[in-house]
Amino acid sequence: MNQTNANAPLRASLQALPRALRTLHKALIDVETVYFGAVGSPLEHLQLITNHPHFAWLQPMSALMAALDEALDEPETLTSEAIAGWRAAIEELVGPGTAAGAFRTKYVILLHDAPDVAIAHGALRQLLGHLPRKG
């Protein structure tokens, strides 16, 4: 079996993550938008999400999602170690663990306050459970 075929199941598992991350990200944005108040048009909403300090704490997740999308677009085979690195990077943001920081602080609050965030979190955690761990 060649390297590409050997890693096909791992790559498939990793490819399920962007959708789960986007669902979670959208749930976080939806809750934060309610807390923020009226936002106007969809373009004004996008401007707020990308530029307003109220939404700035979401930047680490946005950046991670973009980097993961780029990695999945690359034609080379992803190794188990690389996939374990993606799992670790995502878990650094959404747990488990006791990582500190603005993202984690806000995330934990919304995880407990918003059912849609909790549901999306659970779906993401389930996918992560199928990926290899570092070390």
Rank of each mutant, 00 (worst) to 15 (best):
A82V: 10
A88N: 02
G37I: 07
K26Q: 12
I49Q: 04
V94S: 00
N5V: 15
N5L: 15
A66L: 14
Q47M: 14
D69I: 08
A56P: 05
P132G: 07
I90T: 00
S80D: 15
P53H: 08
Q59L: 13
H52S: 05
R22V: 11
K26I: 09
G101E: 01
G40W: 03
N51G: 12
S13N: 12
V94E: 01
L46C: 11
N5T: 12
L131H: 01
L43G: 11
A27N: 03
A6Q: 15
I49M: 07
A16G: 13
T77S: 14
R19P: 02
H130S: 11
L128K: 01
L28M: 10
L46W: 14
M1A: 15
M1K: 15
W57N: 08
W86R: 00
H25V: 04
G129M: 04
L28E: 05
P53A: 09
L46H: 13
V108L: 09
R125G: 03
T33P: 05
G122Y: 06
P96H: 03
D30N: 13
L72K: 10
V117P: 01
P18N: 06
E74M: 12
E44H: 11
A66M: 12
L10I: 04
K134D: 07
G135S: 13
N7W: 09
I29D: 05
F36D: 06
L131R: 01
L28D: 05
P18C: 08
N7E: 14
